[in-house]
């Protein structure tokens, strides 16, 4: 089956992104396909490479990056939500006159059309939020 996943909450405060990650791993382990993982609302905070959790805690951001690399996942961060919350890649930094970027590897910034398309193209769109 073809899945897409929507992550609506940020890391650490809410369990939603942990659950989304574990669900994604389970989907892949069962041999299903992931069309796209979309990050919206505070979920965009899953994509900042500046996250530094304590050493004995899970690193939610690098965990996503690793999963994307291993399985060639398409992980998309909503541009409008990212702009509000300061998640920036090089293109966005240039466009909005920012002096830094923080988008973690494996993520890309794009529009909400990518979420709607994921809903259209996938057999299931599964939301992880509150």
């Amino acid at each position: 089956m073809k899945f897409s996943i929507l992550v609506s909450e940020g890391p650490y405060t809410h369990q939603a992104s942990d659950s989304a990650y574990q669900f994604a791993k389970a989907v892949l382990a069962k041999g299903h396909e992931i069309f796209r993982i979309f990050f919206y609302h505070d979920g965009v905070n899953n994509a900042t490479r500046l996250t530094t959790p304590p050493q004995d805690d899970r690193n939610i951001v690098s965990r996503w990056s690793k999963l994307a690399e291993e399985h060639k996942l398409d992980m998309v961060v909503c541009v409008a939500a990212a702009q509000r919350r300061g998640i920036v890649d090089e293109g966005e930094a240039k466009r909005n006159g920012k002096d830094a970027t923080n988008l973690a590897p494996g993520f890309r910034i794009s529009g909400l059309g990518q979420l709607v398309e994921a809903g259209i193209q996938s057999d299931r769109l599964v939301t992880f939020g509150d």
């Binding site: 919206y40 609302h41 409008a80 939500a81 529009g111 909400l112 059309g113 979420l115 709607v116 259209i120």
Partner: peptide, 12 residues
């Protein structure tokens, strides 16, 4: 932010 998705889905 829900309304933003609604408008995009309508555009699609």
């Amino acid at each position: 932010e829900s309304l933003e998705v609604v408008l995009i889905a309508a555009a699609f």
